[in-house]
Deep mutational scan, measured.
Amino acid sequence: NQASVVANQLIPINTALTLVMMRSEVVTPVGIPAEDIPRLVSMQVNRAVPLGTTLMPDMVRGYA
């Protein structure tokens, strides 16, 4: 089972991601792999991401 990136807090739209906003968790469906967390830092979300939501590739500008 692969860990995915999950929002550690509410992340408002257009917010640049920081390490404290994300955690890794084994979830279904699988989202962005946890090993990509360092790559996600400073990328912006293109929608509001509620606490506990799995980050999907289409939620992060420039990721996919």
Rank of each mutant, 00 (worst) to 15 (best):
N1Q: 14
N1D: 15
N1V: 15
Q2G: 15
Q2W: 09
Q2D: 15
Q2Y: 11
A3K: 05
A3L: 15
A3F: 12
V5E: 00
V5M: 02
V6K: 04
A7Y: 01
A7G: 03
A7M: 05
A7V: 14
Q9F: 14
Q9G: 05
L10Y: 13
L10R: 10
I11D: 01
I11E: 00
I11W: 01
I11N: 01
P12N: 13
I13D: 13
I13Q: 15
N14R: 09
N14K: 09
N14L: 10
N14Y: 09
T15G: 07
T15F: 09
T15I: 05
A16Y: 12
L17S: 00
L17I: 10
L17F: 02
T18E: 05
T18Q: 08
L19G: 05
L19R: 11
V20R: 12
V20D: 07
M21H: 12
M21I: 03
M21C: 03
M21G: 03
M22L: 12
M22I: 12
R23C: 04
R23T: 04
R23L: 05
R23W: 03
R23I: 05
R23A: 07
R23K: 07
R23H: 05
S24Y: 09
E25G: 08
E25Y: 07
E25H: 08
E25L: 04
V26A: 08
V26L: 13
V26T: 13
V26C: 05
V26K: 04
V27I: 12
V27Y: 02
T28W: 04
T28A: 08
T28N: 11
P29F: 06
P29D: 09
V30P: 10
V30W: 11
G31M: 02
I32T: 02
I32Q: 00
I32E: 00
I32A: 02
P33H: 10
A34K: 05
A34D: 15
A34M: 12
A34I: 11
E35H: 12
E35T: 10
E35N: 10
E35K: 07
E35V: 08
D36C: 08
D36I: 05
I37G: 06
P38I: 14
P38L: 09
P38E: 10
P38T: 11
P38N: 11
R39N: 05
R39L: 11
L40R: 00
L40F: 02
L40T: 01
L40Q: 00
V41T: 07
V41G: 03
V41H: 06
S42V: 03
S42H: 09
S42C: 15
S42F: 12
M43H: 11
M43S: 05
M43G: 03
Q44P: 08
Q44C: 15
Q44T: 12
V45M: 08
V45N: 03
V45F: 00
N46G: 10
N46T: 12
R47G: 07
R47Y: 13
A48H: 12
V49K: 01
V49H: 02
V49P: 02
P50T: 14
L51E: 13
L51Q: 14
G52L: 05
G52F: 06
T53N: 09
T53E: 14
T53I: 12
T54M: 04
T54A: 06
T54Q: 04
T54I: 09
L55G: 01
L55E: 01
M56Y: 07
M56G: 05
P57F: 10
P57H: 06
D58K: 06
D58T: 10
D58L: 15
D58P: 07
D58R: 05
D58M: 06
M59V: 05
M59A: 09
V60M: 04
R61Q: 08
R61Y: 11
R61P: 13
G62V: 04
G62Y: 10
G62D: 10
G62S: 07
Y63A: 03
Y63R: 03
Y63P: 04
Y63E: 03
A64R: 06
A64M: 13
